[in-house]
Simulated assay, not measured.
Amino acid sequence: MKLLLIEDHANLAQNIFEYFEPKGYLLDWARNGLHGMELAKNQPYDLIILDVVMPKLDGFSVCNKIRNELALDTPIIFLTAKSQLVDKVTGLDLGGDDYLVKPFQLRELESRVKSVIRRYQKTESQSSLVIEDLTIDKDTRQVLRGNQALTLPPIAYKILCLLAANRHRITTFREIEDHIWGEDVPESSSLRTHVHTLRTAVDKPFKTALIHTVPRVGLKIGRDDKI
C-alpha cells in the first residue's frame, strides 16, 4: 500500500515513516502543499495523509485542487490541531474522507487508514458505471445524464458512487453515513442536505427520477418501476 504524506513538520513525518514502513507501507513525503500536489498529480497513491495548516498551500486548498483540478478520488485523511466542528465539516465537504486531531496515537492513524481504504474499495470495483441514462466515469470523475454533464460537489459524488455500486439493492442511511463520515457522523440534517444536493443535480432537470427514498431505510438508484 502506497501513501502520500503532506506534512510540514519533519519530526511528525519521521515518526509516521518509522511506524508505517516496518508494517510494509510505502510512503512519499511532501513538506508543503505545492510539492504534495505535484506528487499526487504524477504518481498513484492508495491514500493521502494531509496536514491542514501548511506554508504555500494549506491542506483545504490542496484537497480542493486534488478533487476538482486533478479529478482524483484518492482517499484523504486530514491531520490538524484544529478541533472545531466547522473545520472538520469544511474538510469533509471539500472531499476529505476522515479527520484526525493532533496529537494522536500512530496506531489510531493506522486504524483510520485501514478503515478509509475499506470504505473506498467498496465503490471501486468498476471504473465506469451505467444506470439507465446515467454514466459515472470514475477515472475522470465525470458524470453524464444522457449527453448532459452534471456538476456534483464531493460528498454528493461519493453518495452517487455508493448508490451506483449497490444499484441492485437498497443502500441504508447508516451505510451512507459510514461511507462518508466513518464513526464521526455530524448532525442528523447533514445527510439530508447532501442527498437534496444530489437529487437537484441528477433528477431535477430531467423527466424521470433515478434516486428514490425507501422510508426509514435508505436510498436506491434506478427507474421507479424497478424499485
Rank of each mutant, 00 (worst) to 15 (best):
I76N: 01
Y99A: 09
V101T: 14
Q84F: 08
D87I: 04
Q84G: 08
V101K: 14
V101A: 14
N64Q: 15
P75G: 04
L72N: 00
L106D: 08
L106C: 10
F104E: 07
L94P: 01
T90P: 02
F78R: 02
D97Y: 04
L92I: 15
F104C: 08
Q105F: 13
D97T: 05
P103W: 04
L85K: 13
T74V: 15
N68S: 13
L72A: 04
A71Y: 10
F78L: 05
L100Q: 03
F78G: 01
S83Q: 10
Y99I: 09
T74S: 05
K65S: 03
G91N: 06
D98A: 13
P103N: 09
Q84K: 09
L85D: 12
I66C: 00
I76F: 02
F104A: 10
D73W: 00
N64E: 15
R67Q: 07
L94W: 05
L85Y: 04
T74K: 02
A71I: 10
D98T: 04
D98S: 12
L72S: 11
T80L: 07
V89F: 02
L79W: 02
L79C: 06
L79K: 02
N68V: 04
L100A: 03
D97H: 12
L94A: 09
Q84N: 11
F104R: 06
